[in-house]
Design a protein around this nucleic acid. Structure first.
Length: 453
RNA sequence: GUGGCUGUAGCUCAUCUGGUUAGAGCACCGGAUUGUGGUUCCGGGGGUAGCGGGUUCAAGUCCCGUCAGCCACCCCA
């Protein structure tokens, strides 16, 4: 023993796996509600797929190696290059807009810390072939509705949204050159975590005048209405404000504007975003970003494919899981057996197995002791205790004549928990006559599961 | 990659300033008990104190190294 998972990698015991399955099920449910369809690609890709976009320095953060055929390969650190390849290869044939999602496991060789491992699962939701801001609104709505599906409201989570084109127009209006822009982006990105004086120095270092620096530093607290007041008269900026206002109107109609906060300090790296960008954070600011995404219209063409406009977001399972756990929103979803079978005195083992089979044919999950001697000799009462400890929802004792005593374990209302159900028809395999019996059993379990008052 | 903190049973933690066979609760396993039932009682398995080295008559307890975890930085997903 003593063997553990590699650093940054997780073992999923049934309880953790149940949480993960719950996340995935919610991801899929909401994505499908918006008409997105699921795809996947290989977890191992040519190293080149990642170096051509991000350069050689990225190799230090990849799980890469030479395979037995001499190929340079890497475990995928992100899904975007893969999906870009898939879409690019069939760009002409796919009906637009393309709405795809995936839940890949991604790998990154970096030192782990809270909310950040060497492996994680990440919901990726992307739209290809639509440049209208309505698509941007739809994308963010998916992310917000997922939050809502996890019972995380606008008081729990906020979406901070910026717009690269608007930001560029603002910088241009202020007289900041394209050459200075990357330095300004870097300052904006750190505005929250870095003392203002340092930000001011960095801006001065980039060649910004004190007036320009002051305007940039003010971006951190500028809400949208204030931006309109301050810059609405600028012919450079005005069209972008107008488009953003439209975007907000769409979000309002989609019912998610309450999550949205205009925030020019959201930069999201320096790389490929070209339009609206956003990140979701917990409102208390305890955790890393839950989700991040935006528009990257030039990425596909830069990867040598078609020049479809594109936008998407990634939402990892680690931070979201931590947040849900911390907020008590992850009730255990571990599956429990419906019935634990106990033979009646004098019944034989085959009779119990036949009863189990009959119940399983009707989709009930059924378990019993797997030690025949124990099944046969152990007192029914003691077996009922085993049943409870094993997490069964109900004990089912088969009495002579096919009548079953069903004991519901979850009752907390003091109601008599023991019920009799005549299983004769079900045990005999009479399909028609079994229908009411099955319904009766389901009702018992359903009533049992319902919160009692 | 850099720096700081931490490392005793599956989990949460004890073990006074280094001193006999390292303990408890929970969990797990077994037995008994309980007539509507996860109670109560008894018993049991499980730790070379992350690992390696050093100081000492003696180290879980001090020192060094290493590995791992946490936090910050870097970077981003």
């Amino acid at each position: 023993m003593g063997q553990r998972a590699l650093p940054g990698f997780r073992d999923f015991y049934p309880a953790e796996f149940a949480d993960r399955a719950h996340l995935f099920a919610t991801f899929r449910r909401i994505a499908r509600r918006f008409g997105f369809v699921e795809y996947d690609g290989p977890p191992l890709e040519p190293l080149e797929l990642y170096t051509q976009k991000s350069g050689e320095e990225i190799v230090g953060q990849l799980y890469n190696f030479t395979d037995k055929g001499g190929r340079e390969v890497a475990l995928r650190p992100e899904m975007t290059p893969t999906v870009a390849r898939l879409v690019g290869a069939r760009a002409a044939a796919l009906p637009k807009p393309v709405r795809w999602f995936s839940i890949p496991q991604l790998f990154r060789y970096e030192r782990q810390q809270k909310g950040r491992l060497r492996e994680h699962f990440q919901l990726n939701v992307d739209i290809f072939g639509e440049s209208d801001s309505l698509a941007d609104a739809e994308l963010l709505a998916v992310a917000c509705e997922i939050m809502r599906a996890f019972d995380l409201g606008p008081d729990d989570v906020r979406a901070r949204v910026s717009d690269r084109r608007l930001l560029n127009a603002l910088l241009s209006h202020l007289g900041i050159t394209d050459a200075q822009a990357p330095a300004v982006y870097a300052v904006l990105d750190k505005l929250e975590r870095q003392p203002q004086e340092i930000s001011r120095e960095k801006l001065a270092l980039a060649g910004c005048s004190p007036e320009q620096a002051a305007a940039v530093l003010a971006f951190g607290t500028l809400d949208f209405d204030a931006a309109v007041v301050a810059y609405g008269q600028s012919p450079t900026v005005q069209p972008h404000l107008e488009r953003f206002a439209q975007y907000r109107a769409h979000l309002d109609a989609l019912g998610v504007l309450e999550y949205v906060h205009f925030d020019l300090s959201i930069v999201r790296g320096l790389a490929y975003y070209t339009g609206i960008v956003f990140e979701l954070f917990d409102a208390k600011g305890e955790f890393r970003a839950i989700c991040g995404g935006g528009r990257y219209d030039t990425l596909l063409s830069s990867l040598g494919g078609s020049d479809l406009p594109a936008l998407g977001f990634g939402m990892g399972d680690v931070v979201l899981g931590e947040l849900l756990r911390a907020r008590g929103k992850l009730a255990s979803t571990l599956a429990r057996p419906d019935f634990w079978l106990v033979p009646d005195d004098g019944a034989d083992v085959p009779a119990v197995l036949r009863a189990a089979r009959a119940l399983r044919r009707h989709e009930f999950s059924v378990v019993h002791a797997l030690d025949a001697d124990r099944l046969w000799n152990r007192k029914p009462r003691t077996q009922m205790q085993d049943a409870q400890r094993q997490g069964a929802r109900a004990g089912l004792r088969v009495l002579p004549g096919g009548v079953a005593e069903v004991i519901l374990f979850d009752r907390s209302d003091g109601d008599a928990a023991s019920r009799r159900v005549d299983l004769a028809a079900l045990l005999a395999g009479d399909a028609a006559a079994s229908v009411p019996v099955v319904a009766q059993l389901r009702d018992l379990l359903a009533a049992d599961a319902a919160p009692s008052s």
